[in-house]
Amino acid sequence: MKELTVIQAIHDAMRLAMERDERVMLLGEDVGKNGGVFRASEGLQERFGEHRVVDTPLAESAIVGTAVGLAVAGMRPIAEIQFLGFIYEAMDQIASQAARIRFRSYGQYTVPLVIRAPYGGGVRTPELHSDSLEALFLHTPGLKVVTPSNPYDAKGLLLAAIEDPDPVLFFEPLKLYRAFRAEVPEDWYTVPIGKARVVAEGTDVTLIGWGPTVPVIAQAAKRLDEERGYSCEVIDLRTISPMDTDAIVASVEKTGRAVVVHEAVLSGGVGAEVAARIQERAFFSLEAPVVRVTGYDTPYPVPSIEDVWLPDVERVMAAVEETMRI
């Protein structure tokens, strides 16, 4: 075991995968010589060569589109999008192409492709560098979407994504890249795609988050316990698609209350899908309406405003109070 940060765990997973499987390659902007703008691939080009860690021309659609071809034809590409906000450039290649090739070829062709992208706010990036766009891909059948909130899951989920036969989007909360260290096994292991994690057990209310909001809900749960005596169950969804509905339902059947927290905007967000599934499958267990704590329905704001726009511990606590009053 080693103590690693999230970014080191991602690096470790890519190194391990490239050591084990010659088909694994990384392509993207500034991933080679520069080691990625966040240093996720530091030293990998030196180690594995320019043909496996490729500095591409500046074109997201080409990065993903060629990765689709590489994957179909026998390679195991990891395509990096420098910031999730730029993934719109590659939207056709992801949603109309990668996501449907298995379906369109009646199972003949598959796309074992991983697309990595940093996302999330709170670190004063320039415009369009902080957007949370996970809902777009939940809304696209054929794609898997995962997002770790800690070093252990980062490595295990990324290795699972690389092993997966279908396209997996791997979204990295950039605020957590170097936020803390945790023990990570040195060997190969996977964290199953499609499984949520119960971070803390509780009986009064279920708090559901993923990626950058997991530390926020964990902190809120702690304070609600200390200050209000509420027992919160904390769930890290880890996989947005396919969603672990069973885990959500099991928890809400126990607590009767749920608060969903994400940085992405409210309308049409993943929170809406979580709430819909809860009312479909746990309606008679509910003591209160499901509450969402999210970004507001505006474009991501400028740095001087982002802190009050993003969901924070206080907003989560207020939402829990609201559900507990009923």
Binding site: E29, D30, N34, D55, T56, P57
Partner: peptide
């Protein structure tokens, strides 16, 4: 330069 990518790798 485009960040770290030189002209000769760009085109």
């Amino acid at each position: 330069w485009a960040i770290s990518v030189p002209f000769t790798k760009q085109m």
